[in-house]
Design a protein around this nucleic acid. Structure first.
Length: 545
RNA sequence: GGGCCGGUAGCUUAGUCCGGUUAAAGCACCUGGCUCUUAACCAGGUGACCGAGGGUUCAAAUCCCUCCCGGCCCGCCA
């Protein structure tokens, strides 16, 4: 390995390979975990957790020095308590909706209860299920083979019994470790929070620990959950280890223990607090080796952090309205340590970067730099769906070009334009045609939603503009040419010819053409534009001028 | 108070870990081509004192130190 030929060249290592190497070389199990608390809105940021892990699983699969089948699990931390009622939630249709006062009142009845016991604001099922179903659907759309695990079920099934026993039987150690990280944890701290038998809320006040029968006694007191004080009902009771939960700092490492986790990506929010305490709790309380970590930066969207209250939260589906799943996977394959901006307004840059990687992979273009080379040679295959046939070469017309091609309504017209411009091979397969049409659709969505310069809009009705007699006559001649089935190039030429025949200024006539169809003074090359539109429509519009 | 990330052509970034030929790409812009006009295609070109200062070195965008600016996170819960 240390001979000169094998020495690493100047290209750097894909971060997922580096992570996989750390897992393998330290002898950790090839199990990648992630997880979220089902609060707020399930947004595209949550897929940091899912996709970063997915790339590491793929990297582990390439190695022959790991024991066992690499896999990815993802916990829904659905026994966490509802701490505050959000103003905005995601409807079953995936729309952000505001909750009205009545709905919020109803939900506030459930403050302090585990998410599995909070009803969904949309009727069917629990809050937790509602939230998790989005993550599952989105993971499927991005074709990530991840196994979702309900934390609540792990408790019910007794999987947490062992770590709970460890934490409670060595209370001195638990208290000492937690005190290093959490000032509020005093001498009477007990790392277990029972669910009140009476009101169903999670309460932190444990009055006695009975190790022999694996229960705790509690009083349902007020709970201070992250600045939100939630009233208790005053009930006194006894709870088993399965009728409560560990506090987050103890729960996370307990999950590592239960699920045999060897690698875990997490956001920078965990990097200082719960990760550091988690490592110590894993080693000193549970006597296990913590997983290899990967701290990722949060990304911004259009320059701002996502925030439900600010109304700029994006789901995976929102992004997939503009780009192929493969392109979104590419975004998540970029260096996780760098904070970046997922700019939707300028998403054509991201798409273009991806296209270049794809071009380099298929040898259509030279890689521009070492990073592009690395992504083409090492990463590209992981961007494609695991079920995809790599010998299938996707056809992806340039994004901004595709946006304009989208001015034509029907598929045949779009394909013709693409074929003529050299972006679709004559012998394209059915799948390649679908690739191309998909790209046109996505780019068109983007151009129209952002109403940018690529949003070419044809007027539904002829404009009020008065054209002079010569111009109208020229339009009439042009109509005849179009009606005869002229090609885009022939139409382009006909514009020049008819202008001259009618003694019109060529530039002015072009302008009139744009005014007639687009209601503006200029636009894309007129011949291809008219050629792409429905023939009868064009003829009718020309003659109606 | 602590931590992470960034400051490279007009814009967005790659390159920084592992220092080494004229600092790379896309977009924008300009020019040329497509028989003639302009934003759909093709080819080429202009464009950067690499945030500031100091240090190490034969050699610094890259390593070290100090500082300035911007973004985000943590310090209670999760």
């Amino acid at each position: 390995m240390s001979s000169e030929e094998d020495a690493p060249d100047s290209t750097s290592e894909f971060w997922a390979d580096e992570a996989a190497r750390r897992v393998a070389e330290s002898g950790r199990p090839p199990v990648v975990k992630g997880g979220v608390s089902p609060s707020g809105v399930p947004h595209v940021g949550n897929f940091n957790e899912v996709l970063r892990g997915a790339f590491v699983v793929r990297a582990l699969e390439r190695r022959d020095d790991v024991s066992g089948e690499p896999r990815q699990v993802f916990t829904s931390d659905d026994r966490d308590p509802l701490r505050r009622v959000p103003h905005t939630v995601l409807s079953p249709e995936g729309e952000l909706v505001e909750l009205d006062a009545e709905e919020r009142d109803e939900l506030s009845e459930h403050l302090g209860k585990p998410y599995v016991d909070v009803p969904s604001p949309f009727g069917e099922g629990s809050w937790a299920e509602h939230f998790a179903s989005f993550l599952r659907d989105d993971a499927e759309k991005l074709e990530v083979p991840v196994e979702f695990v309900s934390n609540d079920e792990l408790y019910d099934d007794g999987r947490f019994d062992e770590p709970i026993r460890a934490a409670l039987s060595n209370l001195d150690v638990s208290r000492e470790v937690i005190a290093r990280h959490q000032r509020t944890a005093g001498d009477d701290y007990v790392p277990f929070m029972p669910i009140c038998d009476d009101c169903g809320r999670i309460t932190p006040t444990v009055t006695a620990v009975n190790l022999d029968d694996e229960t705790v006694d509690y009083v349902c007191d007020e709970a201070d959950l992250g600045g939100e004080t939630i009233e208790g009902c005053g009930h006194s009771g006894t709870a088993t280890f399965r009728e409560g939960k560990l506090p987050w700092r103890f729960e996370w490492p307990a999950q590592w223990m239960i699920l045999n986790v060897g690698f875990e990506p997490f956001g920078k929010d965990h990097a200082e607090g719960s990760w550091e305490s988690g490592v110590e709790i894993a080693e000193e309380v549970y006597d296990i080796k913590p997983p290899e970590p990967l701290v990722y930066e949060f990304f911004l969207v259009d320059g701002d952090k996502m925030s439900a209250s600010a109304g700029n939260v994006y789901t995976v589906s929102d992004i997939l309205r503009y780009v192929e799943p493969t392109v979104l996977r590419y975004f998540f394959a970029l260096d996780p340590k760098k904070q970046r901006d997922l700019s939707l307004a300028d998403v054509h840059h991201l798409v273009n970067d991806f296209d270049r990687v794809e071009d380099a992979y298929y040898g259509r273009e030279e890689a521009a730099d070492s990073t592009e080379k690395l992504y083409a040679e090492r990463v590209y295959e992981d961007l494609r769906s695991p079920t995809d046939d790599l010998s299938h070469e996707p056809v992806r017309p340039p994004y901004t070009f595709a946006a304009m091609v989208g001015v034509a309504e029907d598929d045949e017209a779009r394909l013709n334009t693409l074929r003529r411009s050299g972006h679709l091979p004559e012998d394209a397969t059915e799948t390649q045609k679908q690739d191309a049409l998909r790209r046109v659709e996505l780019a068109r969505n983007w151009a129209l939603d952002y109403d940018n310069q690529y949003a070419v809009r044809v007027l539904d009705e002829a404009p009020d503009t008065e054209f002079d007699e010569d111009t109208r006559a020229a339009f009439g001649d042009l109509a005849d040419v179009v009606e005869s089935g002229a090609s885009p190039d022939e139409i382009q030429n006909a514009v020049f010819e008819t202008a001259r025949e009618h003694d019109l200024d060529v530039g002015g006539f072009f302008g009139d053409g744009y005014r007639l169809f687009l209601g503006q003074d200029s636009g894309p090359k007129l011949g291809p534009l008219l050629g792409a539109l429905d023939r009868e429509f064009v003829v009718e519009r020309l003659r109606s001028a």
